[in-house]
Design a protein around this nucleic acid. Structure first.
Length: 573
RNA sequence: CGGGGCGUAGCGCAGCCUGGUUAGCGCACUAGACUGGGGGUCUAGGGGUCGUGGGUUCGAAUCCCGCCGCCCCGACCA
């Protein structure tokens, strides 16, 4: 493709609302344009990247035995009503009506639709297992679209659904998908972790997220510095801290005045005590009632773990008014001693030999509080892991990273099939619900994710596997011998099957080089009078920052050498 | 949903507080000249319902009210 005929509208300046490197460079590089909040158009360059991601996903799913289908994006309400998700999805669902007033929505995910397809077409164990996937546009009215392409209201997603006769089969399907996902993410040249995740209210028995490690990620993941343990912070675990040295005989609790000092930081400064000796007490709304959750002063409550410990769906912090009603004191002075209501305590907090905590009285704290002696509470793991906490499987320090969830694999069990009557007959003619799994990859999100991970201050550095073109042939100058050399190279490279963008615009060299760096095609070949006089053309990988370190290739053998380099990079070199 | 902010040329912004010629600047765009290996210089141009509806006023981009859209932080997020 020649730039003179292409549509690659690069920008010097960035739209003010662009957040994060992926949005900035995809907009500036002419890959995408914003149409509305969380809604983007893909321009020719962006489409090429998107298609390459799709191709890799297709190849690996096909290799794993999955079958591609295409389900509609426009859906009648009846399917989601059948599983109750018409209500559960709430405002996240884009709803619309047809001319007759019927309820419709745009598909945010397709479990119901695929389950309906399979319950009609699959009757016998002989038809199993099946794994069906599609690459489809999904619609979710996100409460807050953000991060450009990272969280959109319309986005492209690959979703696959497996159907098996039993748990063991489903587990096999799940493992096959896990392996396929590893291949996909490896081919995309992403730095990622497969992490244990919260399986949430879906009731699944297995779940893993593919988290791409980037600074701007929305999720926090904990990964072991030594072994392969990795988990979303929501579920990451660590063994109980070793109990501190015994404090000997602890005197009875003592009231201390802490006027106006409600935070751990303030009170620890006032009393000259370490935050680790505090019993931080937070009032949560859990289901119907209020619960006091106690963690060490230097720890943070993990709401997912708390909800699990209490066996409720979710918890949230109580309002200031609720706190005051529950404790009789303003926020900052809650404590487990004398608290009228349910209390739970984290393992590490329960091991504090002599703690400081709120007295449920304004401007008063208690010291010398001994869990178990001065109050009783069930002990559970309630806190989030911190950087450096020991790994639950090997004990080495955990490291914390930010990540973007780009893939999720999930064993669903019979959640949908049972509700929707998707059953098969076994060898003995008995009817059983199909055992399902679902597997998503955020295709358009991956485009942005790759940029988040592969860029420098000048622009994108695409990996060869998803670069919009493989070689950027930059013509410098309009001299006849330059034009001829470019044409010759172009023909030879295209004949060799190299995907080529030829910058033949009548622009100054600086403009072309800046654009080339911005667009980020992995290899740049410069043809100009200077280079020709010096005996050939220049080859420079995008990753090489110093233009002086470009390689000189004699024009005669240049095409073959460049094609060989492309082949090496395609192979992951 | 709570808090904060922004809507002025394709993009980035100034002007608004303190109302008053023809609404400016940079980039981009068009034409020409020079220039020619890291976003060059000069000259001449084109391009605006100042988000929208109402109000105040002799007069509104500017003041007031409503609405819409968008961004950021938080809540939420199969």
């Amino acid at each position: 493709m020649r730039s003179s005929r292409a549509l690659v509208p690069t920008l010097k300046e960035v739209p003010a609302d662009a957040a994060g490197p992926s949005t900035v460079f995809l907009l500036r590089g002419g890959f995408v344009r914003r149409v509305g909040a969380g809604i983007y158009s893909f321009l020719p360059l962006g489409v090429r990247v998107l298609r390459k991601v799709e191709r890799i996903v297709r190849e690996e799913l096909d290799r794993a035995g999955a079958l591609e289908v295409l389900l509609p994006a426009l859906l009648p309400a009846e399917y989601f009503r059948e599983t109750g998700r018409w209500d559960v999805f709430g405002d996240t669902l884009f709803r619309l009506h047809d001319r007759k007033g019927g309820d419709y929505h745009l598909g945010p995910t397709h479990e119901e639709i695929i389950t309906d397809l399979v319950r009609r077409e699959v009757r016998s164990y002989r038809d199993l297992p099946k794994n069906l996937y599609q690459i489809q546009t999904k619609f979710r009215d996100e409460p807050r679209p953000r991060g450009g392409l990272l969280r959109c209201r319309e986005f492209s997603m690959k979703d696959a659904y497996s159907f098996d006769a039993d748990e063991a089969g489903a587990r096999q399907s799940y493992e096959a998908m896990r392996a396929a996902y590893v291949r996909v993410f490896d081919r995309l040249a992403l730095d990622y972790r497969m992490v244990a995740a919260d399986s949430g209210a879906m009731g699944g028995s297995g779940s893993a997220e593919f988290q791409v490690l980037v600074q701007t990620g929305e999720d926090v993941i904990a990964a072991c510095s030594a072994c392969s343990y990795a988990a979303n912070l929501e579920v990451a675990s660590t063994p109980p801290a070793p109990p501190p040295a015994a404090a000997g005989e602890v005197p009875p609790p003592e009231r201390v005045l802490t006027p106006g000092k409600g935070s751990i930081e303030e009170v620890s400064a006032l009393l000259g005590a370490s935050p680790a000796t505090f019993l931080k007490s937070l009032v949560y709304v859990a289901g119907e009632g209020l619960v006091l959750a106690v963690v060490r002063g230097d720890h943070e409550v993990n709401e997912i773990k708390l909800a699990r410990a209490l066996d409720v769906r979710e918890v949230h912090l109580a309002s200031a008014a609720e706190v005051e009603r529950a404790t009789g004191a303003p926020v900052g002075f809650a404590g487990p001693v004398g608290f009228r209501g349910r209390v739970v305590i984290d393992r590490d907090a329960a091991a504090v030999p002599s703690g400081i905590t709120g007295a449920n009285e304004v401007d008063v704290h208690l010291r010398n509080v001994v869990p178990g002696r001065d109050f009783e509470a069930p002990v559970a793991e309630l806190r989030s892991v911190r950087e450096g906490d020991p790994c639950p499987s090997c004990g080495a320090p955990l490291r914390l990273y930010r990540g973007i969830e780009a893939g999720h694999i999930f064993l669903l069990g019979t959640h949908y099939s049972a509700k929707m009557g998707a059953t098969y007959l076994d060898e003995r003619g008995e009817q059983h619900p199909l055992v399902m799994g679902c597997y998503g990859i955020g295709v358009s999100r991956l485009v942005a994710t790759a940029v988040e991970q592969a860029h420098d201050e000048d622009g994108i550095r695409w990996p060869m596997s998803i670069a919009p073109y493989e070689v950027h042939l930059v013509q410098v100058g309009q001299e006849p011998e330059v034009v001829a050399a470019v044409a010759e190279l172009e023909a030879a490279l295209e004949a060799a099957g190299v995907e080529l963008l030829v910058d033949d615009r009548d622009e100054r060299p600086g403009v072309k080089f800046k654009d080339a760096d911005l667009i980020g095609i992995p290899l740049r070949v410069t043809v100009g009078r200077k280079a020709l006089e010096a005996g050939g053309v220049e080859l420079k990988p995008r990753a090489e920052r110093d233009p002086k370190r470009a390689e000189r290739l004699p024009l005669a053998g240049a095409a073959a050498a460049i094609a060989a380099r492309v082949a090496a990079l395609r192979a992951g070199g």
